[in-house]
Simulated scan of single mutants.
Amino acid sequence: MHTEHTHHFTPIKSYRPFHSPCDPCPPIGRKYYRTPPNLYMNFQPPNLEQFSPHEALMKGTLWKALYDYYENPYERKS
């Protein structure tokens, strides 16, 4: 039997910590964490698109493919 796997890149991952039925504290709920883009790049290809020097200083990286905007998943959106 052949099954086709499709891998979808997402920088935000989540899990639900184990909560014992005997635990007197309320469950924590879903926990979130981020994985950086460089984890999904086996090697740095030549001629990657670059930010301007000023923009690179503001974003923390020279290469656009390695930029990862941080958004707090616990912050409530209005």
Rank of each mutant, 00 (worst) to 15 (best):
residue 16 R to Q: 14
residue 53 P to I: 01
residue 16 R to P: 13
residue 62 L to C: 08
residue 28 I to F: 13
residue 69 Y to Q: 14
residue 9 F to V: 07
residue 49 E to N: 06
residue 78 S to C: 10
residue 7 H to K: 11
residue 61 T to F: 06
residue 72 N to W: 12
residue 74 Y to Q: 14
residue 70 Y to N: 12
residue 26 P to R: 10
residue 36 P to K: 02
residue 72 N to F: 13
residue 3 T to N: 11
residue 21 P to K: 00
residue 54 H to K: 03
residue 50 Q to V: 01
residue 46 P to T: 00
residue 14 S to A: 11
residue 6 T to Y: 05
residue 12 I to H: 08
residue 3 T to G: 10
residue 30 R to H: 12
residue 23 D to H: 06
residue 20 S to K: 01
residue 15 Y to T: 07
residue 45 P to Q: 00
residue 18 F to A: 02
residue 3 T to E: 12
residue 42 N to F: 00
residue 50 Q to M: 02
residue 78 S to G: 13
residue 52 S to M: 04
residue 10 T to I: 12
residue 13 K to G: 11
residue 25 C to N: 11
residue 73 P to D: 13
residue 45 P to D: 00
residue 48 L to Y: 02
residue 14 S to R: 05
residue 53 P to R: 02
residue 17 P to N: 03
residue 2 H to L: 14
residue 76 R to V: 12
residue 78 S to K: 09
residue 34 R to I: 07
residue 68 D to Q: 09
residue 64 K to F: 07
residue 28 I to T: 15
residue 16 R to E: 15
residue 26 P to C: 07
residue 14 S to Q: 09
residue 2 H to R: 11
residue 51 F to Q: 01
residue 6 T to A: 10
residue 51 F to H: 02
residue 76 R to H: 15
residue 56 A to G: 03
residue 64 K to E: 11
residue 53 P to V: 01
residue 41 M to D: 04
residue 44 Q to P: 08
residue 62 L to S: 09
residue 13 K to H: 11
residue 68 D to K: 03
residue 65 A to N: 08
residue 12 I to R: 13
residue 78 S to A: 12
residue 2 H to T: 15
residue 34 R to N: 08
residue 27 P to F: 06
residue 62 L to P: 10
residue 24 P to L: 07
residue 69 Y to R: 15
residue 22 C to G: 05
residue 35 T to L: 07
residue 38 N to H: 07
residue 33 Y to D: 14
residue 34 R to E: 09
residue 4 E to N: 13
residue 3 T to L: 13
residue 41 M to W: 01
residue 6 T to K: 13
residue 29 G to S: 14
residue 56 A to W: 04
residue 16 R to D: 15
residue 26 P to G: 07
residue 53 P to S: 03
residue 75 E to L: 12
residue 10 T to F: 09
residue 33 Y to G: 12
residue 75 E to N: 08
residue 68 D to E: 11
residue 41 M to T: 04
residue 27 P to N: 09
residue 6 T to R: 12
residue 43 F to K: 01
residue 32 Y to W: 11
residue 19 H to L: 04
residue 67 Y to I: 06
residue 23 D to E: 06
residue 45 P to L: 00
residue 67 Y to C: 10
residue 48 L to R: 00
residue 64 K to Y: 06
residue 25 C to W: 05
residue 41 M to N: 05
residue 74 Y to V: 09
residue 28 I to Y: 11
residue 17 P to Y: 03
residue 11 P to Q: 10
residue 32 Y to H: 14
residue 39 L to D: 09
